[in-house]
Computed example of a mutant assay.
Amino acid sequence: MNPSAVPPCPDTRDALLEAALACFAKYGYDATSIRLVASMAGKNSSLISYYFKGKEGLYREVFRYLLAHFAAKTGERDALEADRASDDSKDGDGDGRARLRTHIRRLLRELDAHFDTSDPLRVPASRLWLSELQSPRHEVKDLLQARMEPFVREARACLRAIRPDLSPAEVDFWGITLHGSCIHHALMSEIHCLAWTAADPSLALDAMAERLTDFTYHGLRQH
């Protein structure tokens, strides 16, 4: 088949992306071939070159596909958080605690959307995200940076509002610690219960956000 003769077809493109997501998640980047993806999608392998210019382009578009999918899921939540942020700004908390709480709450809800058990993309997406977080590939580093940048920027602003005396290196250290705590609590509740037997795996996100805010805020103020 001549790729240049293939007419654009969104259904075909999406079928290839979904097959690629499944393959990359299950077998990893190196063990996934163009032929394997095409076979799983029930399409001709030449279509991958036509739509994505090769394996690297396909991998990159899988991440774009996932980012668009989760952006659509979190759009309404972002609007809700904006309303809550407005409410928080009225509480007279000038030291940044309210802003920190809003940021933590938004981050936890973002994580909840990415790992929602009712989402059909949850399992392959989770595997792929965790793999990239451990060892990002150059094909998608800029996409990951762009996705994280708003959260990093807001975390820095929160930390500086609470502790304006911190150096840039200290701000980044505490920002990494803050985000790491949120990710750890949100994603590892089941494994925590094996060691921390009194832990509540069903703790509501708002309650978790409040506790993490208290922990971070008081830790920063006493440091």
Rank of each mutant, 00 (worst) to 15 (best):
R147I: 01
A161V: 09
R160C: 06
R137S: 06
L144Q: 05
H185F: 12
E170H: 12
I162G: 03
K141D: 09
S131E: 10
A155M: 04
K90F: 07
A186G: 03
D95E: 14
L178S: 02
H138C: 13
R163C: 10
G96K: 01
K90T: 10
G180D: 01
A186K: 01
R97L: 03
A98S: 13
R163D: 07
L187Q: 06
D93K: 07
S189W: 04
W174P: 00
P124D: 02
L133S: 12
L159Y: 02
R127C: 04
R163Y: 08
C158D: 01
R147K: 14
F173L: 13
V152G: 03
H185E: 12
W174Q: 05
R99V: 06
M188Y: 15
S167V: 03
D87Y: 14
Q145Y: 13
Q134G: 06
V152N: 07
P150Y: 05
D87E: 15
D93A: 09
A98K: 01
F115C: 05
A161F: 10
D172N: 12
D116S: 08
H138K: 15
S86R: 15
H184W: 11
G92T: 07
L133Y: 15
P164R: 08
S181N: 14
L166R: 05
G96N: 01
R99I: 06
P164C: 09
A195G: 15
L121G: 05
R122S: 09
P150E: 05
L143W: 00
D88M: 14
L128Y: 00
R147A: 14
D172F: 06
V140G: 00
S118E: 15
Q134S: 09
